[in-house]
Structures are given as structure tokens and as C-alpha cells.
């Protein structure tokens, strides 16, 4: 067990010695966008369910429901900025 630990410490020390971070900047930016999209999707889950409910009761609410449902998409758009900053 102890041997593995020292071995592991060596590997870590070596990779750090190699200089760069674990993933490069572009990959990190891509991850950021992905996580933002994930958050937006979760937010839209609730809003979408409520919007469909409201539209089922009153068809006139369709446009309003649609707008409210896609509002969290702004999160993804803002996250996209990161890609341009890095790339």
C-alpha cells in the first residue's frame, strides 16, 4: 500500500515537473460551456414543465411560455464567450 503511495506521488511529481496543467486551456473552456449547458438544461426542465402546463390551460400563453423556457439559454451564450477569450 505504502509503495503504491510513493509511486503515485512520483507520478504526480513528474507530471507537475513536466510543467503544464492537467488539461489545456481550450479543453477547460469546452468543459465550462458544457457545464453551463448542463445548468441551463436543468433550469429549463422546471420552466418547460410549467410552461406546458400553462399552455395546456390557455393557448394564448404559448409565446410567453416559449420565451420563458429559453431564457436560461443565456447561460450557455455567456459561457461561449469563454471559448472566444481562450481560443
Amino acid at each position: 500500500m505504502l509503495e503504491i503511495a510513493t509511486e503515485f506521488a512520483n507520478v504526480v511529481a513528474q507530471s507537475q515537473g513536466a510543467g503544464g496543467p492537467a488539461i489545456d486551456a481550450q479543453a477547460a473552456a469546452a468543459l465550462a460551456v458544457g457545464l453551463a449547458a448542463f445548468g441551463a438544461g436543468y433550469a429549463e426542465r422546471g420552466i418547460g414543465a410549467a410552461a406546458v402546463g400553462a399552455v395546456a390551460e390557455d393557448e394564448d400563453l404559448f409565446v410567453r411560455g416559449l420565451i420563458l423556457t429559453v431564457l436560461p439559454e443565456t447561460l450557455v451564450i455567456l459561457a461561449l464567450v469563454v471559448v472566444f477569450l481562450v481560443g
Binding site: 422546471g46 410549467a50 400553462a54
Partner: peptide, 14 residues
Amino acid sequence: SNPEYVNARVRARR
């Protein structure tokens, strides 16, 4: 459970 959906409909009925 889906409280968002049911609540939206119930509020309209209310």
C-alpha cells in the same frame, strides 16, 4: 414528482 407542471395548471384553474 412534477410540481411545476401541476402547479401551472392548477393556478390557471384557480
